[in-house]
């Protein structure tokens, strides 16, 4: 059995619903007239499972083409954009705004098919770090380090 879109959708929402129900059982459910903290998440979790049943039903009844094979090449833009975000998040506390900006621009450069040359990348990184440094550190005074 190969993964089709409805099957994958069903599995995603089944696990989300199951997760919500599992977490909600750890909270006090309360009664209908006095809802506890677990009541609403439990209802949502059950509804999610019902919705996932519809997706799974669709997956069984009709023929859907399987989701194409996922290769590194096909998810490269996503992977690189996420890597750039992650690198920025990790580096901003340690290395400061300027270096993390350079890091983000350099990593995200690889995400597209049309790539910026190295010199324009360097210029872009320099211009952007000067701009955000001025705007967010100097003018708006966000609690950020500029340098390590």
């Amino acid at each position: 059995m190969s993964l089709s879109k409805p099957l994958l959708s069903g599995l995603i929402f089944l696990s989300l619903g199951g997760f919500m129900i599992a977490h909600a059982t750890g909270l006090r459910l309360g009664t209908v007239s006095a809802m506890g903290p677990g009541f609403f998440p439990m209802v949502i979790g059950i509804l999610m499972c019902l919705v996932s049943a519809v997706f799974l039903g669709q997956a069984c009844t009709s023929k859907h083409p399987a989701v194409g094979t996922i290769s590194v090449a096909s998810v490269r833009p996503l992977l690189l954009v996420i890597t750039a975000l992650g690198a920025f998040a990790i580096s901003i506390d340690k290395f400061g705004l300027i270096l993390s900006t350079v890091l983000l621009v350099t990593i995200s450069r690889f995400a597209g098919d049309e790539r910026l040359g190295w010199l324009p990348t360097a210029v872009l990184a320099a211009v952007l770090s000067a701009f955000v440094g001025y705007l967010f550190w100097y003018v708006l005074k966000l609690p950020l380090q500029l340098w390590p």
């Binding site: 954009v81 920025f88 983000l104 910026l116 872009l124």
Partner: peptide, 29 residues
């Protein structure tokens, strides 16, 4: 190719500035 790195940067700083914490950038990812 010039735009998207700049937009990503502003998205990151914007998310950071909501609560001034890096955890939110991880949540964004």
């Amino acid at each position: 190719k010039l735009l998207y790195p700049s937009i990503l940067l502003f998205i990151c700083i914007g998310v950071f500035s909501i609560n001034n914490r890096t955890f939110d950038i991880g949540l964004l990812a």
